[in-house]
């Protein structure tokens, strides 16, 4: 039988946010930067939107869920939604009457598949992989870890890929994150 977990009211969420520790604020900032990097958004805007949705009661926060994790999931959902909006965008091509004067200079972006776009994106994917691997030129385990993540390996599978025990794996993953953070402090190359 499914047990219903009570949820925090909007006031309780606000109170919990107001009492976040310095470390928890750092986690939130970092998460917003990572999502902004992936979805090409502004990190502060994303975080602010997550706050607003939490306060508006649009998302329920069970009392047994950590508020930071709740806000991270809210950011993920908002960022995903924004990306889907762009992906599902329908292009409207203005139909002009023959001979009608063209007023204005609006040139709507055409988001249809463009072979040239594909080449650029493929290059960018390759460039992303190369850039990430380039951060660990002499560390094969870190390179395998990055490669595995980019290819979609998770959990135990990913750990097995690196031939590391749980502790060493956690330590390698932390090293990978710190290296990426150092080289991409705001999700971008400084």
């Amino acid at each position: 039988m499914k047990v219903e977990v009570p949820v925090r009211s909007c006031d309780e969420i606000a109170a919990a946010i107001r009492t976040l520790t310095n470390a928890q604020w750092i986690r939130l900032r970092k998460a917003s930067i990572y999502f902004a990097w992936v979805y090409d958004l502004n990190a502060e805007d994303l975080l602010q939107e997550a706050f607003c949705r939490a306060l508006a009661g649009g998302r329920q926060c069970p009392i047994n869920v950590d508020v930071v994790k709740f806000l991270v999931e809210a950011m993920r959902s908002i960022a995903n939604g924004e990306a889907e909006k762009v992906e599902n965008q329908v292009d409207f091509v203005p139909v002009l009457q023959p001979g009608a004067p063209v007023d204005g200079a609006v040139d709507p972006e055409d988001s249809r598949a463009d072979p040239e776009d594909d080449v650029i994106a493929a290059d960018t994917t390759k460039a992303l992989r190369q850039a990430m691997l380039g951060l660990f030129p002499n560390d094969q385990q870190a390179r395998d870890l990055v490669d595995g993540i980019l290819l979609g390996y998770e959990g135990e599978e990913l750990r097995a890929l690196t031939d590391l025990d749980s502790k060493a794996y956690a330590s390698k993953r932390r090293f990978m994150r710190r290296t990426i953070d150092k080289n991409y402090p705001d999700g971008r190359k400084p």
Binding site: V68, V72, R173
Partner: peptide, 26 residues
């Protein structure tokens, strides 16, 4: 958006998930 662009975003999203997982565990 083309499939390739989506692939790139998916790959980057996986990386971000791993980074966030570590930030939450640190």
């Amino acid at each position: 958006m083309t499939g390739t662009k989506k692939e790139r975003r998916t790959a980057l999203a996986r990386l971000a998930d791993a980074l966030i997982e570590d930030v939450l565990a640190t």
